[in-house]
Amino acid sequence: MKTVFINLTPKKKNSMSGYLLRTTKLFIKGECVTINYRGSADDKKILCELENAQNLVFVTPLYVDGLPSHVLELLQRLEKTVSKELNVYALLNCGFYEGEQCELALNMVKIWCKHSGTNFCGGLGLGAGEMHRVLRWNIPVSAISAVLGALALAFNFHTLGVSLLWNAFGFIFFWFIFSLNMFLSAQKTASNISKSKNNGLCYTTVSFCPSWLFTILASGYWILRAFFFHGIPFWKIFKRYNLK
């Protein structure tokens, strides 16, 4: 059984689609190929890989309640050329809290399958994409904290060492707890893909994080990111375009 994953995020690195793709791939049995789509020049590669594949998985972010425009363009080109035997899955991730917001885009892939004659096998809609993406940084932060904690203990700075180790544990703990739903859904979807079974439309979001907490964390994240990466203070985020 061969599965071809196409990563459709426009981001060159550190994308949520890439993270979701790799997580799902961990649980796939059988041959797996990933193509990072960058433009129409990749069409040939895609068609070539699809020649002896059974499963095709589109992994894409949700843009303005639909598929991003470059994904539509790719789908239009593939529509006439793909093999009708393919089982097609879609892994969507969106920025908002509710994974259900991906439903429209998942159904667009379903309609593409009808046009192309391929077999739509459902997919996954993951909410809080940006939050999942950023939470990954907890892993290196935790590792650094653990190393520093161990060093501190070795040099007999006992209190500092213990607090750094607790810090390391906290970062890993929250990464794991918040991402649990994603891991479970990726595992379930992957097991269906491995068997070419219908996955239905499944939706999930961050675990153990109610939407009010998501709102606070995500808003704080935007404020910090604007300030530390671009030097834009909080109040300038609200600028109006026509009032320069």
């Binding site: 639909g66 598929l67 991003p68 425009s69 539509l72 239009q76 667009m108 892939v109 309609i111 046009h115």
Partner: peptide
């Protein structure tokens, strides 16, 4: 296009 806006509009 596939139950949504066309690619250029999107």
């Amino acid at each position: 296009t596939y139950g949504g806006f066309s690619a250029p509009v999107k």
